[in-house]
Every structure is written in structure tokens, then in C-alpha cells.
Simulated assay, not measured.
Amino acid sequence: PPRLVDYFVVAGLAGNGAPIPEETCVPEPSGPLRAPRPADPITDVAVIARALGEEVPQGYTCIQTSAGGHPLELSAGLLGGTQPVICYRRGRDKPPLVELGVLYEGKERPKPGVQVLDTTPYSHSANLAPPGPGHPRTYLTCRRAAEGAGLHALGITDLCLVLPSKGEGTPHTYCRLARNLNPGMWGPAVYLCYKVGLAKANTLVYEAELLGRYPEEDNEAFPLPESVPVFCLPMGATVECWPAQTKYPVPVFSTFVLTGAAGDKVYGAALQFYEAFPRARLSERQARALGLLSA
């Protein structure tokens, strides 16, 4: 009789009750390794005026080059230019930013819930446009996730600036703002791009392993690929600590395609779900990383 599926597998974090190992780098399905823990989401964006002697605030990262590595000097070299520089800060101490924008003063009103970054942390103007008549004052805007937005709330995880005149395009999976940060007659057009992802906190990430399979023996015509656990859990097997009032997430269904050496395709489907994890299996460092112990 025809078979509906070739294999059933269970993938996740192995251990059988033993203490879990320290975090490992997780291989992407395509091959390269990615960082074991996701970077903290971006919680703050600021503009500083280099020409006025302003320094990057503590804890902030300054964007000094474009996505392609070219130097960025907004309004530099122009009489009265403040040489504005965009900075950002990552953290878990407040809800992440979920949206960025560019406001041309006098052209529109800010949307409800949006903050206009019209001053620097040092109380100077945060205008990004070069000085001169006919150049609208240009400010960044941002919107923050609501307090208690939920376990799997989205947030901005990365941002960059692109210079189309240098052949730079929007990076893959990024959103590019339509408005030019340098609307004057001088200097190249500059566009802000940002990436949105899950802003998970208190998470440990491990490479997914094969916990069980049926049948236990390989089919000679189609041996079970070793990479199946990675495709079942492409974000890795995670150990997460949630607030007590968090609702249990519903299972997530996904599909994937494996391509063999001969070009033949095999289709798979996965159902991802959470289950309780014993705290006794955590080391002190892991418990601290999950927020169960104070530093």
C-alpha cells in the first residue's frame, strides 16, 4: 500500500535528565553557524551632532559606515552643518522599538503613538537635513511596543543606512524607509533600513538533536537525512523563562523542503511546541542568563 510519510521524528534538546551543556552555535540549514543567542532588541535611537562636540552616549552604538562599508557624513562640509550621526542602544530594560520613520517638518503631522526625535541627548537640534533654504527639517521618529506586549512580541533587531549612489540596495529581510535622510541638493541620498524580529528575552539556544524516530531503521531508497532536526527547529532548541502570567503559546506548524545530491526534493512538516523544563538541569550561569538569579 502507498505510504503517507517515510518517517516520524521527534527533535529537541537531548539529555535524558542530565544537566544541559553550555550554549552551542546553531548551524543554519544552509550551512554556516549563527550566534547561539539572539542579540538584544533595539530599545532606543538617538541623533548626536558631531560638529557641536557631542559624544556617543554610554551604551549606544554609532552608525559610522553604510551597509556597504562607505563612510557616512550627513551634511558634513556644509556651512553650519552639525554632522549628525545616528546611534542606537540594545537592551531588555524597556519594550523594544517596533517602527522607525522619517518626518519632514511642515509636510505632515506625526502619527498617534509616535515619538519625534527632534533633539539630541544634549538638547541640540536633531535635524538630519543639511542647512539652507528649501531643505525641510528632517527628524527620525520611532514607536515603541506596548508594555506587556506578550511573550513573542516583535521588535527592531537591526538597522543600517544605505547609499544607492554606491550601488547599495536594501539588505535581505530589511524594511527601507521611503524618505531620504539627506533631502538637500548636496550630498548623496541616504536611506534608513531596519529589520524586525522576535524580541525574545531570557532565552538559551541549542542545536536541535534527534530524540526519537519511527521506523528506527533507514529505508534503503531514502535514508533519513541527518539535517532533519535542524529543519524541524530552524531557530534551535530553546530553553525560555516566561513571566508567571504568560499564556502558553499554541503549537506552530511549518513545512520545509530537503534537496538531495541528485536534485530530488523531499518534503517535510513540523509541529513545534513547548513543554515544562526542570530547573534542576540548569547550571548557575544558565539560571542567571534566564533571569532566575540576580547577577
Rank of each mutant, 00 (worst) to 15 (best):
residue 1 P to I: 14
residue 2 P to S: 12
residue 3 R to G: 04
residue 4 L to V: 14
residue 4 L to T: 14
residue 10 V to G: 02
residue 11 A to C: 15
residue 12 G to A: 03
residue 16 N to H: 12
residue 17 G to Y: 00
residue 20 I to K: 00
residue 21 P to S: 06
residue 21 P to C: 01
residue 24 T to C: 07
residue 29 P to S: 03
residue 30 S to F: 05
residue 31 G to C: 02
residue 33 L to C: 12
residue 35 A to S: 14
residue 37 R to M: 08
residue 39 A to N: 13
residue 39 A to K: 14
residue 41 P to Y: 11
residue 43 T to Y: 04
residue 48 I to K: 00
residue 50 R to P: 02
residue 50 R to D: 09
residue 58 Q to R: 13
residue 66 S to G: 06
residue 79 L to N: 09
residue 79 L to Y: 12
residue 80 G to K: 06
residue 84 P to Q: 00
residue 89 R to Q: 15
residue 90 R to W: 08
residue 91 G to N: 09
residue 92 R to C: 14
residue 93 D to F: 06
residue 96 P to Y: 06
residue 97 L to F: 07
residue 98 V to W: 05
residue 98 V to G: 08
residue 99 E to A: 15
residue 101 G to T: 10
residue 102 V to K: 05
residue 104 Y to N: 01
residue 104 Y to A: 00
residue 106 G to H: 07
residue 107 K to G: 06
residue 109 R to K: 15
residue 111 K to L: 14
residue 111 K to A: 15
residue 112 P to K: 12
residue 117 L to K: 08
residue 118 D to N: 14
residue 123 S to W: 12
residue 128 L to C: 01
residue 128 L to S: 05
residue 131 P to G: 09
residue 131 P to T: 09
residue 135 H to F: 06
residue 136 P to S: 09
residue 138 T to Q: 01
residue 141 T to A: 05
residue 142 C to S: 15
residue 147 E to L: 13
residue 148 G to P: 04
residue 148 G to M: 10
residue 149 A to I: 09
residue 154 L to A: 15
residue 155 G to K: 01
residue 159 L to G: 07
residue 161 L to Y: 08
residue 165 S to F: 01
residue 168 E to S: 03
residue 170 T to G: 05
residue 171 P to E: 11
residue 173 T to I: 00
residue 174 Y to A: 05
residue 177 L to R: 03
residue 182 N to E: 02
residue 189 A to T: 00
residue 190 V to Q: 04
residue 191 Y to H: 15
residue 194 Y to S: 00
residue 195 K to D: 02
residue 197 G to I: 02
residue 198 L to K: 11
residue 199 A to Y: 01
residue 203 T to Q: 13
residue 207 E to K: 13
residue 208 A to Y: 00
residue 209 E to L: 06
residue 210 L to D: 03
residue 211 L to I: 09
residue 211 L to S: 10
residue 212 G to L: 01
residue 212 G to A: 15
residue 217 E to R: 13
residue 220 E to G: 00
residue 221 A to R: 12
residue 222 F to W: 04
residue 222 F to T: 08
residue 225 P to E: 04
residue 225 P to A: 09
residue 226 E to P: 07
residue 228 V to I: 15
residue 230 V to C: 13
residue 233 L to G: 03
residue 236 G to M: 06
residue 237 A to C: 04
residue 241 C to S: 14
residue 249 P to F: 06
residue 251 P to H: 04
residue 254 S to F: 05
residue 257 V to A: 09
residue 258 L to F: 10
residue 260 G to R: 13
residue 261 A to Y: 08
residue 262 A to F: 01
residue 263 G to I: 08
residue 265 K to Y: 07
residue 268 G to N: 06
residue 270 A to K: 08
residue 272 Q to M: 02
residue 273 F to H: 13
residue 274 Y to C: 10
residue 274 Y to F: 11
residue 278 P to R: 05
residue 282 L to P: 03
residue 286 Q to C: 08
residue 286 Q to Y: 05
residue 286 Q to H: 11
residue 289 A to W: 06
residue 291 G to P: 09
residue 291 G to Q: 10
residue 293 L to I: 12
